[in-house]
Nucleic acid binder design. Structure first.
Length: 250
DNA sequence: AATCATCCCAACCGCAATAGG
DNA sequence: ACCTATTGCGGTTGGGATGAT
């Protein structure tokens, strides 16, 4: 198996190769990567083609320095999700998982591991320690003791994406428009309370984490203020409210 | 100007998950 | 239920660019 890999080109892509790949994707669309080298007339393996497209050639990929809010979001999402780069990148329009991973490994990680052992520590720089919450398992069951209560989400965002300083309340299993009273009543103050879900706890412990609340759809969503489209919270919650006891991935 | 160290990013590799027969 | 092919992900590496000495 994989004998076809013998003699394949490796290393940096040429502009000619890029053009061949671009034309192929435009003609046949994304996917079916195993067919791409043949269709494009490229002497590259399918993985290389896929990576080149996703990380470099794909339209709308943002280049250049990360903006302050992007960096802030990466840090916060990394606290919540750990090294799940594709999930993190999915919340940052125009950035690829590779971009985010590289950025973290080359610049942000040094803040986390300011020890001499870390090869990325730059001498003489003042470094701030980041407290990282270990990522949770990707799957859980409905019977998990932490899965009984819908998470209290934090920070409301209206149509203009203006951040609201108060937590958002979920009352009697229903997401409700925020009021000061319900919000304050819904804040989990005791982190050891069994009635708090693991992600309620995560959010509560991650003080600056934000959850966007769409007032039109009455749904919560982790993400950027510039229009991310994830559905993790609703996905999880609809599962918890379903009859199924199957394990679900996040 | 030359050399060395460090930074940064594109690309590769291995493996787990998923799809399909 | 099992097997194989394919996809997608995260960890790691190679090498060019840049900065320091």
């Amino acid at each position: 198996m994989e004998n076809y890999l013998v003699g394949l080109r490796k290393g940096a892509w040429t502009s000619e190769e890029d053009e061949l790949l671009r034309k192929c994707i435009h003609k046949y669309g994304e996917g079916k990567w195993h067919q791409v080298p043949l269709r494009a007339g490229l002497n590259r393996c399918r993985k290389s083609c896929r990576l080149r497209w996703l990380n470099y050639l794909k339209p709308n990929i943002k280049r250049g320095e990360f903006a302050e809010d992007e960096v802030d979001l990466i840090i916060r999402l990394h606290k919540l999700l750990g090294n799940r780069w594709s999930l993190i990148a999915g919340r940052i329009p125009g950035r690829t998982a590779n971009d985010v991973k590289n950025y973290w490994n080359t610049r942000l990680r040094r803040k986390e591991y300011p020890s001499k052992k870390d090869p990325y520590v730059t001498k003489g720089k003042t470094i701030e320690k980041i407290d990282v919450i270990k990522p949770q398992p990707r799957a859980f069951t409905k019977n998990n003791i932490y899965s009984k209560v819908k998470p209290t989400t934090i920070v409301n965002v209206n149509k203009d994406c203006v951040e609201h300083p108060l937590p958002l309340c979920i009352d009697n299993n229903h997401l409700k428009p925020l009021t000061k009273t319900t919000a304050m009543n819904s804040i989990p103050t005791d982190h050891n309370d069994e009635n708090i879900t693991w992600w309620q706890r995560l959010l509560a412990e991650s003080e600056t984490e934000t959850v966007l609340f769409n007032e039109e759809t009455q749904s919560g969503d982790l993400g950027l203020t510039s229009g991310s489209s994830g559905h993790d919270l609703d996905h999880i919650w609809s599962f918890l409210n379903s009859e199924s006891d199957d394990i679900v991935g996040i």
